[in-house]
Each structure stands twice: as C-alpha cells, then as structure tokens.
Amino acid sequence: MKISTVIELTEATLVCGGDKTELMVERAFSSDLMSDVLTLDTEGLLLITGLANIQTIRTAEMADIHYILFVRNKKVTPEMAELAGENHMVLLATPFSLFKTSGILYKHGLKPVY
C-alpha cells in the first residue's frame, strides 16, 4: 500500500517526509509498547502508535522502521520531527483511534506482522 493511500484512508496529515508518499508499505504493527516493537524482524513496516515521544522515534531508528502513523492526533514535537528527518522517516498523524486506524488499513489489504 502506498503511503499516499494510508494518508487518504485514515484522513492523516503528513508531519514530515513529504517526498516519500509514493513509497510502499507491506505490513503494519499497532503498539504503544516499544519493547514489543524492538522484537520485530520485518522490513517495510508501518508502525501505528498512540505513543508520541522521542523514544518512539529512537525505537523506529534502531528497528529500521521508516514509517510511523500517530493516532488520535498525538502531537509531534520539533525534536521528534528533527530526529525523524535525520533518519529519513515519514511521520503521519490521524484523528482516528488505534482500533479504527488498524481496522481500516487491514480491511484495505495492509498485512499484519503476526
């Protein structure tokens, strides 16, 4: 699924990484637990999370995750956006809940990790 389709389906705003919206994600993982995210071994992953802090971006950096979708319009701080930019990430924010976001994307063909 293209990032632009993720944006469209979840009515998301693009926080950073606007030059990468035509890139594809194959799978998604929804979690607020970064410890769990660090156990994943999946390429081309979209992380859907309600946890918006600098460690969310750090975790993605270490786990080679390039796409993060924050739910419930969680605020991305300038420090988070800067770190994401340094690591060439795409950050998105949707007003939808974690459950609704995951449901919509799953229904439209985005695959789960497990």
Binding site: S35, L38, T39, N53, Q55
Partner: peptide
C-alpha cells in the same frame, strides 16, 4: 510511559 518496562529487554538483548 516511555513505552518500555515490560520485562522484555534482557531476553531481547540475549536474542
């Protein structure tokens, strides 16, 4: 609150 502390760190380090 930072998304850690679930008791998974040391076993993930081992892995």
């Amino acid at each position: 609150e930072m998304g850690f502390g679930a008791g998974m760190g040391l076993s993930n380090i081992k892995r």
